[in-house]
Simulated scan of single mutants.
Amino acid sequence: MQSKLSLAALILLFITVAHYTRVVPSSMSWSQKTFSLQSRSRGCYLVTDEVVQSLPEIKDFKIGLLNLFIQHTSAALTLNENWDSDVRLDMTDALDKIAPENWNYRHDAEGSDDMPAHIRSSLIGASVSIPIKDGRLATGTWQGIWLCEFRRYRHSRHIVATIQGEKFK
C-alpha cells in the first residue's frame, strides 16, 4: 500500500512541476547596477528624476520591482511628498530634534554630526522598493524618492539598483 501511495505522490509532484515550469514567463529578468547621486550636504532631497535618468532600463519592464539600496550608514532613502518642499525642510528639522548633534555621544570619530547621522539613517532606512508598471515607476500621485543626507558636508552617495520583473516582449 505504501509503495502505491509513494508512486501516486511522485506522479502528482511531476505533474505539478511540469505545469508550473510552463507558467513562469520566459521573459522574467534581473538587472542590477550601481550609480552615484549628486553630492549634497545635510537635508532631504527629492531625487526621483535623478534615479530614473540613471536607470533607463526601467522602460524595458512591463511589470517588476525596483529595489534601491544606499551603501552608506549616514544617509538614507525613503518615499515621501514630491510636491511641497516644505515637507522636506520639516522632516530635516524633526530628525534634528530626534537625534540632535549637541548630545553627549560616545561615537564621534568623524565629527559631531557622525553619530546623529547613524541614528537618523537607522530610523529612515537604507532601501526602498517600488513597483514598476508598463515601463514606469508605479508611485502614488504625491510620492517621490528622497535622499536624506545626514552629514554636514557634501558626500557622494552610491546606490545599488536591482530590478526584477517581466520585460516587454
Rank of each mutant, 00 (worst) to 15 (best):
Y45V: 07
H72A: 00
S31I: 09
W30R: 12
D96S: 08
H118S: 08
K4C: 09
Q53F: 09
L55V: 09
E149W: 00
S29K: 04
Y20P: 06
V51L: 11
S156G: 06
L89M: 08
L55D: 02
Q71A: 10
I58N: 02
V52P: 01
E81L: 02
W103A: 08
A161S: 01
Y20E: 13
S127N: 08
R22Q: 14
I15D: 05
H107N: 13
F35M: 07
I130V: 14
V17Q: 11
T21F: 10
T21D: 07
A76C: 03
W103P: 03
T34I: 07
W83H: 15
F168P: 00
L37Y: 01
R154S: 13
A117Q: 03
L137F: 04
K59Y: 07
M91P: 00
M91A: 03
W142S: 03
M1S: 14
I15T: 13
L147Y: 04
T16Q: 13
G144V: 00
R136E: 14
S54R: 06
R88N: 08
Q53D: 06
Q143D: 15
I98M: 15
R22A: 09
A8M: 05
T92F: 05
F168S: 05
E166N: 15
A161T: 05
I132Q: 07
L77H: 00
L68W: 01
V23L: 12
A117C: 02
M91S: 00
D113M: 05
F150I: 00
L37R: 01
H19M: 12
S41F: 14
K4M: 13
R136V: 13
D90G: 06
I15R: 10
S31Y: 15
I132R: 01
H19G: 07
Y20A: 06
S74K: 04
F14K: 11
L46Y: 04
S122M: 14
S27W: 05
T92A: 13
V23T: 07
S54Y: 12
D114C: 04
H155G: 08
V47Q: 00
R154F: 11
R22G: 13
G125A: 01
E101N: 13
V51M: 04
I130P: 03
L66V: 11
A161Q: 01
I11H: 11
A9C: 07
L147K: 00
A126Y: 02
S85K: 12
R152P: 02
I15A: 12
K62E: 08
V23K: 10
T48W: 05
R120K: 15
D86N: 09
D134Q: 14
T73Q: 10
F35S: 00
E81Y: 01
V87N: 09
M1C: 15
Q32E: 15
R106I: 15
R40E: 07
F35T: 07
W146F: 14
T162D: 10
R120M: 03
D96F: 06
N104F: 11
S29A: 07
K62W: 08
V52G: 02
D134I: 06
R152D: 08
S26T: 08
